[in-house]
């Protein structure tokens, strides 16, 4: 194939070598792949447009209902944000505890991680919804075992400052956020621990040698560098969390997106368009999150020479 390209016209024969007749490398495989993909896409578009089961009008109508939109904003987005705040904050704290020299702190962190990683989220959320039964008189904040101490001292009354109604706490969005947040903290603890351990110990030594306290070393030197390693899997976790909000059904949280869509679907006997509507909502939210992740990675990649990988990164962050 290349011998023709290299052959020079016989009559030209210049004194200096002429321009090389370069032929680009041919990629016949790519053309085959393009044809296959185009055909598949055409089939998909045809299916989407012509198949009556999609009932696009109903899909968009269902998506536009106020309870559904509320479910998306509160049940999906708000719960994702709040749970991830609890999860990331708790996870970093647990990771620092786990890596501490103090055996009590590291033991507590280990037990927490063990417990919450062991329980399936669906069952954890179901349990959170029923925890109120443990505290029929509410959750009181005050001196522990105050009734025993008061009894022992021969006094009366109580030493409680305020009491929460347990059935109010362990219900709805609050129970959902507590459950998802604590579960997430257990996973984030491992991610944060990996991030902290990825930072060269010489960094902490240099900071300590400058007289910085342990806390300052962590906040100003170690964590900012650990973030470079922590952010990509945290993006993954956020996307997984977005989807796990559909488990709020177990609490139950009836203001949740999929619950609302399903109730519309069962009213009108249209199951499939409802699944399509839910898919579209989750696609939309996930796409927005990926853009956010790109900017976060760029921020924490400063000074390391590597810009956040461009299009490749968001595509790779598909996740659970």
């Amino acid at each position: 194939m290349s011998t023709e390209a290299e052959a020079r016209p016989a009559d030209a024969a210049p004194e200096r070598p002429g321009a090389i007749n370069a032929v680009p490398v041919r990629h016949p495989g790519r053309w085959v792949a393009i044809v296959v993909i185009v055909v598949l896409v055409a089939m998909l578009v045809h299916l989407l447009v012509t198949n009556k089961a999609f009932d696009w009008k109903f899909v968009f109508e269902a998506m536009n209902q106020q309870p559904v939109i509320n479910g998306f904003l509160k049940g999906t987005l708000l719960v994702t944000v709040l749970s991830m705040i609890v999860g990331v904050g708790g996870g970093v704290l647990l990771a620092v505890m786990r890596l501490s020299d103090n055996p009590i702190l590291s033991g507590v962190a280990w037990v927490f991680t063990w417990f919450f990683r062991s329980i399936p989220r669906y069952i954890l959320l179901f349990t959170m919804g029923t925890l109120g039964i443990l505290f029929p008189q509410g959750i009181a904040f005050g001196v522990p075992f105050d009734w025993k101490i008061i009894d022992w001292l021969g006094m009366s009354g109580d030493w409680r400052f305020f009491t929460l109604d347990a059935n109010q706490v362990f219900t709805g969005l609050v129970a959902g956020v507590i459950g998802l947040g604590l579960s997430e903290a257990a996973y984030m603890a491992e991610i944060a621990r990996a991030g902290i351990m990825s930072v060269d110990p010489g960094q902490a030594e240099a900071a300590e040698a400058l007289g910085m306290s342990r806390g300052k070393v962590m906040r100003r030197v170690v964590l900012p560098q650990a973030m470079r390693v922590i952010v990509p899997p945290t993006g993954n976790e956020t996307i997984a969390m977005l989807k796990d909000t559909s488990l709020l059904l177990a609490v139950p949280v009836i203001g949740e997106l999929f619950y609302q869509l399903q109730s519309i679907g069962s009213n009108f006997y249209k199951t499939f368009p409802i699944a399509v509507a839910a898919t579209l909502f989750y696609l939309l939210a996930t796409s927005v999150l990926m853009v956010g992740q790109y900017f976060l990675e760029r921020h924490f990649g400063r000074g390391f020479g590597n810009k956040a990988p461009r299009a490749a990164r968001p595509a790779g962050a598909g996740g659970a």
Partner: peptide, 26 residues
Amino acid sequence: RQQIGMVFQQFNLFPHLSVLDNCTVA
């Protein structure tokens, strides 16, 4: 430790901070 400056074999500069910030953070 504030009275004792230390220079390491592997430099151990803070890679996420600019040269100026490396010298101001402490």
